[in-house]
């Protein structure tokens, strides 16, 4: 496949994630949209890694490996983020019985 299709796919997923994060008010869904964004990045990185591999120069192997490991680390961070994020969301829910990102603002109005 040509790299552009992966690029477009990943950008599409990324932008869908952004749209979701901007339009939804349920913090869990917003958070999931962010996860979607991270995943689109992962996909893109792997596609790029294979693209660099096609370059066939002396470094291409290292280059490709780097990106794949980067994806690995993104997954690590995502996992850590999720544990913290869900803890915060649950804390919020426990106190307010709501997962609205703008809960206090809504109270004010």
């Amino acid at each position: 496949m040509e790299i552009k299709w992966y690029l477009f796919l990943s950008l599409a997923l990324f932008c869908i994630g952004i749209i979701g994060a901007l339009t939804r008010r349920n913090s869990i869904i917003v958070f999931m949209c962010i996860e979607l964004m991270l995943n689109s990045v992962n996909l893109l990185l792997i596609a790029f890694s294979k693209m660099h591999l096609a370059g066939n120069n002396a470094l291409s192997y290292t280059m490709a490996t780097e990106a794949q490991l980067f994806v690995f680390f993104i997954m690590i961070v995502a996992a850590a983020e999720v544990s913290v994020g869900l803890a915060i969301i649950v804390l919020m829910y426990r106190n307010t019985k709501s997962v609205d990102i703008n809960f206090l603002n809504r109270l004010k109005n």
Partner: peptide, 29 residues
């Protein structure tokens, strides 16, 4: 207020992390 601050900070932070990663990926590519 603290709870909401944490939630907001977290979501914003994660969102910006997403942007940053996309940036890094594009630079790598």
């Amino acid at each position: 207020k603290g709870n909401e601050a944490a939630l907001k900070y977290f979501l914003m932070g994660a969102f910006s992390t997403g942007l940053m990663l996309m940036g890094i990926a594009l630079i790598y590519g």
